[in-house]
């Protein structure tokens, strides 16, 4: 049986994440406003999505958002993709083309260890919206966190 022991996995995770609270402590303690996946867009339409007023008003500020970390495109990529549900993508999707509409691209301030895909994380960073093509990978994103960090919750 290849049944993974969830206890062991969880314990390994805890060890990995033990360093995180320290990192968070270097930031000002003021609570950053939080954003949820269902608050990103005010309209989902065939002819385009509309960013919500909340996204527009929080742009440029530090915010927090909870989600799941999709495995990185490339090990050395400067960003990861935060998704509403754990990622399961089709065998032919080597590009960004088959990602869901509602993803947030997270550019980390400093390197952090990747967590298991079924682990909920909270990312904190400066919110940015509008189309942006990552110069290294060509990955197009609509919503980003800059100078970000994360912790499991």
């Amino acid at each position: 049986m290849t049944h993974p022991d969830p206890q062991v996995t969880r314990r390994t995770l805890m060890t990995l994440l033990a360093g995180l609270p320290l990192l968070t402590a270097t930031r000002p303690a003021a609570a950053a406003p939080s954003l949820a996946f269902d608050e990103l867009y005010s309209k989902f339409g065939v002819l385009g999505l509309e960013f919500s007023e909340k996204v527009k008003s929080l742009a440029g500020q530090e915010i927090t958002i909870k989600g799941f970390m999709a495995p990185p495109l490339k090990a050395e990529a400067a960003f990861f993709v935060l998704t509403e549900i754990p990622m399961s993508i089709c065998p032919f999707c080597s590009t960004d083309s088959d990602w869901p509409d509602n993803i947030v691209v997270v550019y980390l301030g400093e390197k952090q260890t990747f967590v298991q895909p079924s682990q909920t994380i909270e990312a904190r960073g400066v919110l940015e919206f509008g189309s942006w093509t990552d110069p290294e990978t060509g990955f197009v994103s609509l919503l980003r966190l800059r100078n970000a960090e994360y912790a499991s919750v």
Binding site: P4, P71, P72, P86, M87, S88, Q116, P117, S118
Partner: peptide
């Protein structure tokens, strides 16, 4: 969604 991808790009049971 039967399986999800881990950081090794392996699919594990959801």
């Amino acid at each position: 969604v039967p399986a999800i991808q881990n950081e090794k790009k392996e699919y594990v049971a959801n």
